[in-house]
Every structure is written in structure tokens, then in C-alpha cells.
Write a protein that binds this DNA or RNA. Structure first.
Lengths: 103, 103
DNA sequence: TTGATATATGTCAGATATGACATATATTTA
DNA sequence: TAAATATATGTCATATCTGACATATATCAA
């Protein structure tokens, strides 16, 4: 795993304090985090494609601009449930979401 | 939507008290619930394929038998995060999960 | 039957996620 | 440039999820 990726993860609150500990991230945890990051990225893409600001998307989702920012930033406080609900609200189909995950 | 499906949803805690209210389930909510049910079913299949009891799977996940039962039952208190972590722990790959969702 | 094992259901205290808010920092526009 | 708009970051009260436990109900073997 590249240093840059580790930095990104740490910045977003994933507890990865040193290389050893990082290696202890189980394969499952890593996979889950990477799935979240993939969905985050797709969320931002979709929002921009629709020419919405984070504030506008937040209104659509009945959430807040700051939470949308956190979703797009891949913050560790954001669940898959919230990401998926958001993608669906932006018009993604279940199939489209499956496609995002098949990588 | 068939009556039987409505009954299943209600039984599992999805607030769907009457037909009118049921119709108000947004398309997104329905899609999310169906995705969860799909993953629930796959979880049970996988567990049985591995010849594990719910108790044994719970130990593997550092969870409890009752929570595994709820996961498999599609209980509304169970998040996608937990379902996906469980599937990954049972050896499902990200790709396999994408496949489950592509339906 | 009976006892053993598996699964389902209800509850709850503690853990985690949420929207909201304030405010910092970019980015865009005039 | 400066002002306006957009996005990022930190915090918090409330809401929701979690593992654990008790206990009910199946399922199965003797």
C-alpha cells in the first residue's frame, strides 16, 4: 500500500497510526474502506454531473452540507447505508451501484 | 408489491403499517431494503455452505448469535455496513458482493 | 416422548452515526 | 483586489446500531 493512500486514510479518521498497525488492518476492513471510498467518489461525480452544490444535494437528502462534504471526503464517520441512500437519491440504480463496486 | 412481501417487511420492523403508508416508501428506501434482503439471504447461504452455526459465525465476527439471526432475518436494525463486513469475513470478495447486487 | 442443539425474538446499556451549527479555507465572480 | 459562493473541518445533542443477555421456539437424535 502506498504512503499516499495511508495518509489519505489517516486524514479521514481511519485509525491507522503506524505501519505495523496498518498491516493489522484486516483484509475485510481494507475492502470495506475501499468500497466506501469508491462510492464516495461516485457520489461526488454524480453530484457534479447534476450541477448541484453540496448544499443543494444536502437539501435533497434532508441532510446538511457538512455531512455531504464528509461523505465525499470518505470520512470514517459515514456509513455505507448513508452513501447508498444518497446515491439512490441521486438516481443511481441498484445495478449501477453494483457496477461501481465491481471495480 | 405482493401482500406476502409487505408482511415480511412489517415483520422485520420496516415501518409499513398500511397500504397507503407503504406506497409512500420512496423508491430509494425500497431499493435499499431490497439490497439488504439480498445480502441477508447470501449471508445465510454462505454460512450454511461453510457448515457453521449462527453461534460459530458470531464467534468469527466477534458478535452474538442473536445479531447473526437478525442479520439473516433482514431485521431493520441491521446496517449494510454490518452485512458487508460479515460477508467479507466469510470470504466473499468485493466482486462477489457486486455480483450479488447486480441481481 | 426427552434432552440437546440451533435459531428466533425482545430488551437494553454502551457505542457509533447523524444533522445541525459555527467557522475556516477555497474557489469563483465582479 | 474584495465580496460572494462553495467546500472543509470540528463539535455536539440526539438518534440509531451494536453485542450481550434472557428466553421462546424449532429441529433433531436417542
Amino acid at each position: 500500500m502506498k504512503k499516499s493512500k495511508k495518509n489519505i486514510l489517516e486524514k479521514n479518521g481511519w485509525k491507522v497510526s503506524n505501519a505495523d498497525e496498518f498491516l493489522k488492518l484486516s483484509a475485510e476492513e481494507s475492502a470495506l474502506i475501499e468500497m466506501k471510498l469508491t462510492l464516495s467518489q461516485n457520489l461526488r461525480q454524480l453530484r457534479l454531473k447534476r450541477n448541484l452544490s453540496q448544499k443543494e444535494l444536502a437539501a435533497l437528502l434532508e441532510s446538511s452540507q457538512s455531512r455531504v462534504a464528509k461523505m465525499e471526503a470518505g470520512d470514517s464517520s459515514v456509513t455505507l447505508d448513508l452513501l447508498l441512500r444518497s446515491l439512490l437519491s441521486l438516481g443511481s440504480s441498484r445495478k449501477a451501484i453494483a457496477k461501481m463496486l465491481e471495480q
